Computed example of a mutant assay.
Amino acid sequence: MRTVLLVLSLALNVWMGVKLVRLEDYHYASQLGMCAEYLGPDLAMQIKRDTCLEKTQTRTSAFWTVFYALID
């Protein structure tokens, strides 16, 4: 039973780390003004901006992204 809980805990931590990296990349890209060509009042432009920001990788490694997410 203990092994199952350990594996579940590890899987949850990895999943949360992946989500943290995606969220921090989105946040930092938005702060830097990336995908600014899609800014505007039009909903279609906002959807394109969100899609662009979700695909943007702002740092060289996921480890650096987690590091900056945790210290900020």
Rank of each mutant, 00 (worst) to 15 (best):
M1R: 10
M1K: 12
M1A: 06
R2D: 12
R2Q: 11
R2Y: 09
T3L: 14
T3N: 09
T3Q: 11
T3Y: 10
L5G: 08
L6M: 12
L6Q: 12
L8P: 04
S9V: 12
S9I: 11
L10V: 14
A11K: 04
A11F: 13
L12G: 11
L12W: 14
V14Q: 05
M16V: 12
M16Q: 13
G17S: 13
G17Q: 11
G17P: 13
G17L: 08
V18T: 08
V18D: 06
V18G: 04
K19P: 05
L20C: 09
L20Y: 07
L20D: 11
L20S: 13
L20E: 11
L20I: 09
L20F: 08
V21P: 09
V21Q: 10
V21W: 06
R22G: 09
R22C: 10
R22E: 15
R22V: 09
R22A: 15
L23Q: 12
L23R: 12
L23Y: 10
L23P: 00
E24F: 03
E24P: 06
E24C: 12
Y26P: 08
Y26E: 13
H27P: 05
H27G: 03
H27D: 10
H27M: 07
Y28A: 14
Y28G: 05
Y28T: 13
Y28P: 00
A29Q: 00
A29S: 08
A29M: 03
S30T: 08
S30R: 02
Q31P: 06
Q31I: 13
Q31L: 15
L32Q: 09
L32K: 04
L32Y: 03
G33F: 13
G33P: 05
G33M: 05
M34E: 04
M34D: 04
M34L: 15
C35W: 02
C35I: 02
C35L: 04
C35M: 03
E37H: 01
E37F: 00
Y38T: 00
Y38F: 09
Y38E: 00
Y38W: 04
L39S: 01
G40H: 00
D42W: 01
L43M: 12
A44W: 09
M45D: 05
M45Y: 10
M45N: 03
Q46N: 00
Q46G: 03
Q46I: 00
I47R: 07
I47G: 00
I47K: 06
I47H: 02
K48V: 01
K48T: 03
K48S: 03
K48H: 03
R49C: 00
R49W: 02
R49D: 01
R49T: 02
D50A: 03
D50W: 07
T51H: 02
C52R: 01
C52F: 01
C52A: 01
L53N: 02
E54P: 00
K55S: 14
T56E: 14
Q57W: 12
Q57D: 05
T58F: 15
T58V: 15
R59P: 05
T60L: 10
T60K: 10
S61R: 03
A62K: 04
A62L: 06
A62F: 12
F63I: 05
F63L: 05
F63Y: 05
F63S: 03
W64G: 07
V66E: 03
V66R: 02
F67T: 11
A69H: 14
L70G: 12
L70M: 15
I71C: 14
I71Y: 05
D72N: 14
D72H: 14
D72V: 09
D72A: 11
